[in-house]
């Protein structure tokens, strides 16, 4: 039962009603259950932010690291015990901003990690500040006139090396999300799943959404499946691009 992988006695979770993180947690637990991952072969590492708190709900050894430091901690774990499946769950701010340097280098080293990035385009836990993935022009509490910068191109960054795994999915597309998670965990190298997710309280309401569901419906309407085997995902396409699986 996938619920055995969760500390359900700690529920309700600390996340706001309508948040997208719970939908990721459920799919991760189901994926792990289907893959036979458990206390004896897996570790979940979370970073600071609402998403990182997910680590504490998993019923196996987990680490809630400092802000931005999931990747180095996970890398230390993986080097000492390569047989452990190490799954990282964190937000776009943690992975791409404060932890950006580690992202570049974990990628360069092609460390065998599965990274699930809850990408809600905002710093949710600290109250809705602009982050590295906030679309240009989006108002946030720290960019009242709209974020002045282009967001980081995560796909482009992830594809800089000769071997890569980059998946984009959304919390609405639950079946696709689980498939991406499973493929990422199986990928023999650095795998990154970029999950469009909704932060209703500290982002959505400012943008005119009334409920988390309205944001999910927006994902349903806007995102389209990319054809299998494409080399690159267009904006608002879900799918995955990978290269170099055959190499050790």
């Amino acid at each position: 039962m996938f619920k055995d992988l969760l500390k359900t006695h700690l529920f309700p979770t600390s996340w706001c009603p309508g948040c997208g993180i719970g939908g990721i947690m459920a799919q991760l637990a189901m994926a792990m259950d289907e893959m036979g991952l458990n206390q004896s072969n897996s570790v979940v590492v979370g970073g600071i932010g609402c998403t990182g708190r997910m680590a504490g709900y998993f019923n196996l050894d987990s680490v809630y690291t400092l802000h931005g430091r999931t990747l180095p901690v996970a890398q230390g774990i993986k080097m000492v015990n390569p047989s452990l499946k190490v799954i990282i769950i964190s937000g776009d701010g943690d992975l791409a901003s404060i932890g950006g340097n580690h992202l570049i280098h974990a990628l360069r080293r092609n460390v065998d990690l599965a990274v699930l990035c809850n990408n809600n385009e905002v710093y949710g836990l600290t109250g809705g500040q602009a982050g590295p993935t906030t679309p240009q022009g989006t108002p946030t509490v720290s960019s009242p006139d709209g974020s002045p910068y282009e967001p980081l191109n995560l796909q482009g960054l992830l594809k800089t090396g000769s071997r890569y795994f980059y998946a984009r999915t959304t919390v609405y597309h639950q079946v696709h999300l689980k498939r991406c998670i499973k493929e990422a965990i199986q990928w023999p190298g650095f795998a990154f799943v970029d999950i469009a997710s909704q932060c209703i309280e500290n982002n959505g309401r400012r943008l005119g959404f009334k409920t988390g569901y309205e944001m999910l419906a927006m994902f349903r309407d806007k995102y389209k499946r990319a054809p299998d085997g494409v080399e690159s995902l267009a904006p608002l396409e879900i799918g995955l691009v990978k290269r170099g699986e055959e190499q050790p």
């Binding site: 004896s40 050894d61 987990s62 809630y64 015990n81």
Partner: peptide, 11 residues
């Protein structure tokens, strides 16, 4: 070591 229980290591 990690991988033997359900502990939560946190700051």
């Amino acid at each position: 070591p990690l991988g033997t229980g359900n502990r939560f290591f946190t700051g």
